[in-house]
Design a protein around this nucleic acid. Structure first.
Lengths: 190, 190, 190, 190
DNA sequence: TAATAAGCGAGACGGTACGTCTGGTCTTACC
DNA sequence: GGTAAGACCAGACGTACCGTCTCGCTTATTA
């Protein structure tokens, strides 16, 4: 009952949060700043986003979702490359700063880490694993592939460059895919 | 001239900073807390460590240095595995939490990022690259290896698991080395 | 709109400020000390009293007001003596220390001086001048009295003894009135 | 034994202290500021002037002494007027700000008050009292004069205007002398 | 003429208080 | 019952000075 939640306020908060993260990073990302920028009262923000981290995550996902391409050409290797490339492309833009902010926040707030894993990291891994799995089934990838570790290496490289502030671009993304996939091809142990 | 810097105070500050980062992470890592725990005056801390991040880095390096093994058996691949394993072993302990804190801090303080890169990341890469380079010279690794990307993948995987709070252990470290090195061996492009 | 100001907090601050000034003088009169003694947050104090001096003045006036007697017997000379006596009596007590503190503070803060003049000094002079004016009208005081200077002499003597830490008592107050008024009586220039 | 005190340092400190008090008042009068302005080490200042107040007093007296005229024309009333005028003239200049600062400091430091009384206030009163005393002896002033109170009124008026930031000039000084002396002349009690 | 004792500049140290910023919580009025 | 406004307590921020404490260097006196 009572007055329904204001969608207007929700949008204003998420937009302001995203903008602040993109423009100035975590440093100036305070409830105070979001409130003043969005014109929404601080109390209202606290009501719906109990912690800074959760607000950051939501504003990130909100902007990130649907930007990631889960294309399906039939060729698992091509699809995997495309997925990696898509990830890199998105993270090289403003959303990258927001993602990095969320990971930083996660270091001091376990709840933020949990939600980040759950809503972003795990689904991404699941999809990637599915593609590689189809490669195995199709015989284009080694049957004894250590899937988890391959994904750690591929995705970890992206995260690392993001967090260290090193450039992410399509060329690098291709070289990453080359390097990772080369170890996944079938063939004799040399 | 003037009164010489107190080595005692320096040690107390670094120890307290390290302990706080290990025990409670960045959340409670304030100059205030370090001062009160170390018994050193807040002004003294500011005199030597102008920002939180630099204090975190120094306390991390101080504890990290010499824990990392740069062994040299003559076999570059074995040495590379040992280095990776050593990195994982150190980061799986308390120093890992401190490293993660520093990386988080680096997201909001460019100076922290710069120093972290300079004093930790770059030297580690340099050493790793040297080992792989010797493998190429010796013919046990492909001549056309994309060294930079291989290191991104190997080290990135470690960073990622660290930051996402996922376990780092010797078994995983070995599997990571297996996976990474497999793609580096010489052989026909398949 | 918004939450209304807490009268409780206001009282606690003024009382604590007054008590500190009385007990230890300006030396230990810090926002910090008032906050800790009153139990009111430092930020709340800053919200309402932007400077130390204004807080001191308000706590002084708050305690001083209504202690000063503006009696009216019909005889202006008697009333003037009573006013002077009343001033001396009040300033010889705890409020005297607070008044002295405010005057000291006024030496380094023009705003404090301005407010002190406006809310304390000027009204006191106005009332005194009114009494003496009625004496002139009634013919008991010289018509060519230099009112401003007479008040400078009468009130200045009180201020001076207060600031130099010399005793203020009824006997002295009477002698002061005698001395000042003697020069104000009508009579031939001798 | 040992190295003798540096007169150069002493002068530099007193000059700097005086200049600071004149230019910015007590607000910026810190040992730090005096040290940095004078080029003398902070420790050296503390060696010779244990408290702020004593430094202020010394720098004041140093500049004030000999500015005050104790002329002696033979006519005590004229001499008294001259003394008052001289006091007003000196205090209306830069030394006035310094004197006011010292009195302010005296409110939080009893030692400062004691020394101020001893080296400035008491000698001034003594000289003034001597002049008025000669007036009584000569019969130009009432024999039953309340000397202490007359001086309180005369000097107090000057102090008060100084501390309240009100102008001190020769005209006012003459009117003050007129007003005060009028009550001191012999004649019937009216 | 060397030792020595005090003065001095430099600058670190443990502290206190500053005035500001932000975090969360609360209370009130309005919608 | 949601929302805006804004007060409240709490506590960290980075800075300015405080008064004390080593230091190493300088300068007279005295042995």
């Amino acid at each position: 009952m009572g007055r329904p939640r204001s969608e207007e306020a929700r949008r204003a908060v998420l937009d302001a949060a995203y903008a602040i993260l993109v423009e100035t990073g975590l440093g100036r990302f305070s409830t105070e700043a979001v409130a003043s920028r969005s014109g929404v009262a601080r109390t209202t923000i606290y009501r719906w986003w109990p912690t800074r981290g959760l607000l950051a995550i939501e504003s990130f996902l909100d902007a990130f979702r649907a930007q990631l391409v889960y294309a399906e050409t039939g060729d698992p290797l091509t699809d995997f490359r495309a997925l990696l490339d898509s990830l890199v492309r998105v993270l090289s833009g403003p959303a990258g700063l927001v993602a990095a902010s969320v990971m930083a926040e996660a270091q001091s707030d376990p709840e933020t880490r949990r939600v980040f894993l759950e809503v972003f990291s795990v689904p991404l891994r699941r999809e990637s694993a599915r593609l590689l799995g189809r490669g195995i089934e199709g015989g284009v990838l080694r049957a004894d592939l250590d899937l988890a570790v391959v994904l750690d290496a591929a995705v970890g490289a992206v995260y690392m460059r993001l967090l260290l502030g090193q450039p992410l671009d399509a060329d690098w993304s291709n070289r990453l895919a080359d390097t990772v996939l080369r170890g996944c091809l079938p063939g004799p142990d040399r």
